[in-house]
């Protein structure tokens, strides 16, 4: 199995253990674990959007009164049920975001013709990024146009369909290397299996009811 596919499979096995979990303490622990996993695989954490998602989802759900009143701010009552639902939804959203980051960190290559077309899209993307130069003021369209024209002229159709760029720009070569299949080693299979086991182990702990919330 390729390295990228291994992460996809591991992620798919983790998702039910996360989505079926409703103990908020365990969910929070799982989210932290998924964040660490994504960072360990080279993805970045952006604290501000995550904080905004957490706060906005919780606050919006608090507007719908549900269950025991915890405290009131003026006429607005903060209820336990609404708080739990809000936290559940926010943690689910953030957790899924990071499991997704982890799953795509191996640069998966999608199968079939759509996958080939996607590879072609990334080759062109690399080309645009590497050949793009900061445009002069008011000449953004001309600069963009020049890149698009050069790109179309540089790639002969037959070569592009074989995912081999005519140009030898470093970005394009890098992109070709990136789509080559790298097989997963035994150690990687064991490590990814341990990650899946952690998720299911925490699911069992949450399901057993020994933790509050």
């Amino acid at each position: 199995m390729s390295k990228s596919n291994l992460r996809i499979v591991a992620g798919l096995l983790m998702i039910p253990a996360f989505l079926l979990q409703h103990n908020l303490v365990v969910m929070a622990a799982q989210v932290v674990f998924l964040m660490v996993l994504a960072v360990a695989k080279g993805r970045r954490i952006k604290p501000l959007p995550i904080t905004i998602i957490l706060i906005s989802v919780v606050v919006m759900n608090l507007l719908q009164v549900n269950g025991k009143v915890l405290f009131s701010i003026g006429t607005f009552s903060v209820t336990l049920g609404a708080l739990k639902i809000g936290l559940d939804k926010a943690l689910t959203l953030i957790g899924m975001l990071y499991v997704s980051q982890y799953m795509v960190s191996g640069k998966p290559k999608l199968p079939g013709r759509f996958g080939q077309l996607l590879s072609k899209q990334f080759l062109f993307f690399e080309y645009i990024v590497t050949s793009w130069k900061r445009p002069e003021r008011g000449r953004f369209i001309e600069s963009l146009d020049s890149v698009l024209e050069t790109m179309e002229n540089s790639y002969s159709e037959s070569e592009v369909s074989n995912s081999i760029p005519v140009t030898e720009s470093p970005g394009a070569v890098q992109a070709v290397r990136a789509v080559r299949t790298i097989r997963a080693g035994t150690l990687e299979i064991i490590t990814e299996s341990a990650f899946v086991l952690f998720m299911w182990g925490s699911f069992i702990i949450g399901f057993s009811g020994i933790l509050p919330w």
Binding site: R43, T92, V99, S100, M103, V104, K107, P108, Q121, F122
Partner: peptide, 12 residues
Amino acid sequence: GQGLVNGTLFSY
């Protein structure tokens, strides 16, 4: 493509 680049392909 955006899902792959941003890592959101398997998220909400």
